[in-house]
């Protein structure tokens, strides 16, 4: 059974159909990469999986449980999923370490000293141990993004959602963050992410999905979707992005 099973999901904003009969299976330990033009619905899909948006139809199952059922406890579901946003979304009024330890302490009831130790360990892992007591505003973009990844990881999520996490970073830091994600994959983390870094996608993805106007147009291993795309829209997108 898949860890994440998305079946026939539909999502609209007013008259704008953003996801249309979208289906996707993500196995445990798998890394699935979403690609597609800006506005094709990648972020919305990730937000739906994290229950930050309510789907208009269809089912999303995590670990065999229908998480789109209105009767489930959405906070419980979310606390088992890590999400990292394009714009970091760190809490500006908390130090980096407090950003990381907020959920463990408040949601998971981890004792403060344990949470802090674990938070520091996480920050060390993303190379930010020295910045633990800084405010997010005093960090560079790359540092903020790594802090956001640490914040998502500290909950030991079953699934990580990553939304163009390197789009705002300078090239040197892109490498660092991508290395971090590769490590995560090696550790067996299940990841669903969208990116414009095709070399990275090629390298890390088990499955690549090409989204076009809210539809899953083409999917398969990188060697197929990136090297030998069958759909004209995919070919055109890849040609444009490689220029």
């Amino acid at each position: 059974m898949s860890l994440l099973s998305i079946r026939e999901v539909r999502k609209t904003f007013g008259a704008n159909v953003v996801l249309d009969r979208f289906s996707l299976e993500v196995e445990a330990g798998e890394c699935v990469v979403l690609i597609g033009a800006s506005g094709s619905g990648k972020s919305t899909l990730l937000r739906c999986v994290n229950l930050l948006e309510t789907v208009d139809d269809g089912v999303i199952e995590l670990d065999g449980r229908d998480i789109t059922d209105p009767r489930i406890d959405a906070d419980r579901v979310r606390s088992g999923i890590g999400i990292v946003f394009q714009a970091y979304n760190l809490f500006p009024h908390l130090s980096v370490l407090d950003n990381v330890t907020l959920a463990p302490i408040r949601v998971h009831g981890v004792p403060r000293d344990v949470a802090r130790a674990r938070g520091l360990e996480m920050l060390d892992r993303v190379g930010l141990a020295a910045k633990a007591s800084s405010r997010p505003d005093d960090l560079s973009g790359g540092q903020q993004q790594r802090a956001a990844i640490a914040r998502a990881l500290v909950n030991s999520p079953k699934l990580m959602l990553l939304d163009e996490v390197t789009s705002a970073l300078d090239p040197e830091l892109v490498g660092e963050v991508l290395d971090l994600l590769r490590e995560l994959k090696t550790d067996g983390m299940t990841m669903l992410l969208c990116t414009h870094e095709m070399a990275f996608a090629q390298d890390v993805a088990d499955q690549i999905c090409f989204l076009d106007a809210g539809r899953l147009l083409e999917s398969g291993p990188p060697s197929q979707v990136l090297q030998n795309p069958t759909q004209p829209r995919t070919q055109e997108f890849l040609r444009r992005i490689r220029l």
Partner: peptide
Amino acid sequence: MSDWQPSALQLER
């Protein structure tokens, strides 16, 4: 688009 009909599950929700 306009051919969309809510599924039984969605109606129940």
